[in-house]
Design a protein around this nucleic acid. Structure first.
Lengths: 202, 202
DNA sequence: AATTAGTTCAACTAAATGGTTGAACTTATT
DNA sequence: AATAAGTTCAACCATTTAGTTGAACTAATT
């Protein structure tokens, strides 16, 4: 009764990589067992079923993104700075979790209801501080008429899409692995510029 | 020997919806058979295997997007107009093929090599007309220093991301089905504005 | 009408997969 | 040392799944 936590953690760690890489349907309990160097029945001992294990992995995945993003949105910093922070957050996160964005987005669409329920449980909703901040900028005439939702959508789109479409980007732009990551790094400064200049009033 | 084409086409049509909705691993040959109102062995009669059927569906999916997009990129119209055309193309396409973007992006990442080979077969690469057009604008000082790849990436990101993340957008912004599509429609004019204003020289 | 090629289906098979069981083993507690 | 609680595993099991088979049927060709 000393290594049990280690075993459980190892299973969970491996389960994360397998589920994120292969998706729920593509993942095999046997593969998780093999890579965790344990017997398949251990999976069911620690996590009752594939479904339960997946659920935990998925929720951990969402928790790795949403609370942090919403944390940034709530910070008491100028909108400009906030945009930079969001962009940097996404790019940092992706470096350590290449499959995470694709995994979360895909599985979310596969089980919308589960996701909605889970989001309901957490206290996740667009922070009013952020909304008010965008509205204030609009009101003051410092940026064009735009809803906070659209404004945020633009930032998130510019950040995540090149990550989700990694294969497509690499293929069509003929980028090997390092060139692809350079391409992403370039966007750390590019995105805030486009986003902010793009909403300047006419 | 009169309805055989009809049968084959019906199978293919159904296979498209099932594969696009559930993905390769999630799709079941039985479900395709049921919805096509035929026996499961007919699937293997017309399309040798799940793999082959999927391949055809996937390639048809790619062909529904890439050639058209690259067609637009090749047109002899001003860059401004081109941006509008791309944005409208994505939004029109999504209306009739809700699961297509998500499907193609996801399966592409699952089998990068297959995709690269397939793209190699087609003559898909960033049209030089487009690249030159962007470079010319930069040279003339009408837009900031930016690579054609980054410029295109921005447009595609702004268009596709809200489609890929439909569930997330609906959940976090509390949008029902019509409100979500209104949100998308708004972007037809919003995206070109942001994209073009965003690259104006300082 | 007979022949032939193409089409359909019910029943089947082999393999894979998630999950179970019960015994053996380990470790902490008394 | 004895007991109890938690942990590990090899061998199974039931179900699902892609794929096969062979006979029956249909329709065009001669």
């Amino acid at each position: 009764m000393a290594l049990e936590k280690e075993t459980e953690e190892k299973i969970f760690r491996v389960a994360q990589t397998v589920f994120q890489k292969r998706g729920f349907e593509g993942a095999r309990m046997q593969e998780i067992a093999d890579e965790a160097e344990i017997n398949k029945s251990m999976l069911h001992y620690y996590f009752r079923s594939k479904d339960k294990l997946f659920q935990e992995v998925f929720q951990a995945g969402v928790k790795k993104i949403m609370p942090q993003l919403f944390g940034i949105l709530k910070e008491e910093v100028p909108l400009q700075q906030k945009v930079h922070n969001i962009v940097n957050f996404y790019h940092d996160m992706f470096r350590d979790n290449q499959y995470l964005p694709s995994f979360v987005i895909y599985e979310m669409n596969q089980h919308p209801d589960r996701f909605k329920e889970f989001i309901g449980m957490m206290n996740i909703q667009l922070p009013s501080i952020f909304s008010e901040q965008v509205s204030a900028e609009v009101q003051a005439g410092r940026i064009r008429e735009i809803s906070p939702e659209q404004f945020l959508m633009n930032i998130v789109s510019m950040c995540m899409m090149p990550m989700l479409a990694k294969t497509m980007v690499q293929t069509i732009f003929s980028l090997d692995e390092p060139a692809y990551f350079e391409f992403l790094e370039e966007r750390r400064s590019l995105i805030p510029e486009i986003i902010l200049k793009g909403v300047k009033p006419t």
